[in-house]
């Protein structure tokens, strides 16, 4: 279990910094795909492990793109919100022991809302931290919308492509 998550950590980080950060679609579309790692951590992950691994993931991305601290802050924030989001979505369906937060185990609808909430949260924190204030809020909102959309499509795509095999 630990090894599988470690492999996912490396795969997601390298995809983000070597592939996605090099695809230039303008200022508005910068999908933070690395949130995929936080989304797919098992339900049983201890709180400290969840926070620390998310912090490291964010920091790793920061090291590669000169934004020291920004991605780390956003990613820790999402990790902090994750138990809350899971509890919020739980009201509709009970989690059995051994289930994992994937499409295969919990269905398309559950995963879509889970991914959507987390991704929008991440980009909101990230882009407001980047402008460091609320000037140009309209441009920031457009960036949040477009980037979240792109990240959402990516996460769903990867989940459909690789999620079934795991």
């Amino acid at each position: 279990m630990f090894v599988r998550n470690l492999i996912r950590f490396v795969f997601v980080l390298l995809t983000q910094v070597l592939v996605l950060n090099n695809i230039n679609l303008g200022v508005n579309i910068n999908p933070a795909f690395y949130v995929y790692f936080i989304l797919l951590l098992p339900f049983e992950t201890a709180g400290w492990a969840l926070l620390l691994s998310s912090f490291l993931m964010g920091l790793g991305v920061d090291f590669f793109c000169n934004s020291l601290g920004m991605n780390a802050a956003a990613s820790v924030f999402v990790a902090f919100c994750r138990p809350g989001i899971i509890r919020f979505l739980k009201s509709r369906r009970e989690y059995e022991p051994g289930t994992r937060p994937t499409i295969r185990d919990l269905g398309v609808r559950w995963f879509f809302s889970y991914a959507f909430i987390s991704i929008v949260l991440l980009h909101t924190v990230l882009f407001f931290l980047e402008t460091f204030g609320f000037e140009n809020a309209d441009q920031t909102l457009i960036r949040i919308l477009l980037s979240s959309g792109a990240a959402f499509v990516l996460v769903i795509l990867v989940q459909f492509l690789f999620g079934r095999r795991e």
Partner: peptide, 22 residues
């Protein structure tokens, strides 16, 4: 409440990094 305090300290570290970097 260690989950909350760990979250808080990690965020403080991150924000310090951002401010220093700015």
């Amino acid at each position: 409440y260690y989950f909350f305090f760990l979250f808080l300290s990690l965020e403080v570290v991150a924000v310090l990094l951002i401010v220093k970097n700015n």
